[in-house]
């Protein structure tokens, strides 16, 4: 492997990562889920985290989302070392996480889902008009194809639901959006919608972290690819430079790109 693949540097030189995980470790009993994992995320880029089952992709997401605080290592957000002890803390920092199951209420319409738990009030009453306008504005920035914001979520397609979940995550004006397997279990046209959505998130200046199994999707939308293998980093690539075969080799361990640490 060439050296440039081991440390390709940031996508845009001179920019500081908005979120940086440094030497993150996480243990569950005897299981070392993560060992010294590094991850930098910059504004306006899509970073894909790939790896085999049990490589630690979901654990990294849960560390960033505050579900499982790390055992060792530091998290730096916008240049400041921070702790993320809870999901609330993660959201307050400006990290929004969209999980695979989306956590939407099927019986409620799109507006109610978007503002669930943080309804806008006008005096003692719900500010329905405001929420509806805000929902329309948000969904329009995502160019989501939705018939009406008063449609119950149960009637939406998989891609439309994903759009609603992403829109909800954008309500708190996050800087980092984490998407966990957003195209899994979607049909091809809905997956297309979601991939376009990821591109628009990137273009609107968000940092996007994408977890996916689908190599074609990752190659299509990501700017950098971070490979995890058995809870360790096994290479970081610029998507523009790397072939499908090289990524598969890094995932399976056919090439060993784990950073050597003297300590």
């Amino acid at each position: 492997m060439t050296e440039s693949h081991e440390n390709p540097g940031p996508v845009k030189p001179g920019t500081r990562p908005v979120l940086s995980l440094q030497k993150i470790s996480k243990r569950f009993g005897a299981v070392h889920a993560l060992t010294d994992v590094d991850l930098d995320v910059h504004v306006g880029e899509v970073v894909a985290i790939v790896g085999d089952n049990g490589a630690g992709k979901s654990t990294v997401v849960k560390v960033m989302a505050g579900v499982h605080p790390q055992d060792g290592g530091t998290i730096v957000f916008e240049g400041r070392p921070v702790t993320i002890p809870s999901p609330g803390a993660s959201q307050d920092l400006g990290i929004a996480t969209v999980y695979q199951d989306l956590a939407l209420c099927d019986n409620l319409d799109i507006v109610s889902n978007l503002f669930l738990g943080r309804e806008a009030l006008h005096g003692p009453f719900l500010a329905d008009g405001y929420m509806e306008q805000e929902a329309i504005r948000l969904l329009r920035t995502l160019s989501a194809r939705l018939p009406s914001v008063r449609t119950p979520v149960s009637q939406l397609s998989g891609g439309q639901r994903q759009a609603v979940a992403v829109a909800r995550s954008l309500l708190g004006k996050p800087k980092v959006v984490i998407l966990d397997e957003p195209t899994a279990a979607l049909g091809v046209s809905q997956a297309a919608e979601v991939l376009n959505l990821i591109g628009r998130l990137r273009d609107s200046g968000h940092a996007v972290v994408l977890i996916s199994h689908n190599m074609a999707d990752i190659q299509a939308v990501s700017d950098r690819i971070v490979v995890l293998r058995l809870g360790r980093n096994n290479g970081t690539f610029h998507t523009a430079d790397v072939s499908y075969e090289e990524i598969i080799a890094a995932i399976t361990g056919a090439t060993d790109l784990a950073p050597r640490r003297s300590s």
């Binding site: 049909g187 091809v188 297309a192 991939l195 376009n196 591109g199 074609a216 990752i218």
Partner: peptide, 19 residues
């Protein structure tokens, strides 16, 4: 639908047909 660098004919045509 966005595609990756050096996309392949089989996968591309398959997706086109499904779309």
């Amino acid at each position: 639908l966005p595609l990756g660098n050096d996309h392949r004919a089989d996968a591309g045509l398959d997706r086109a047909a499904l779309l």
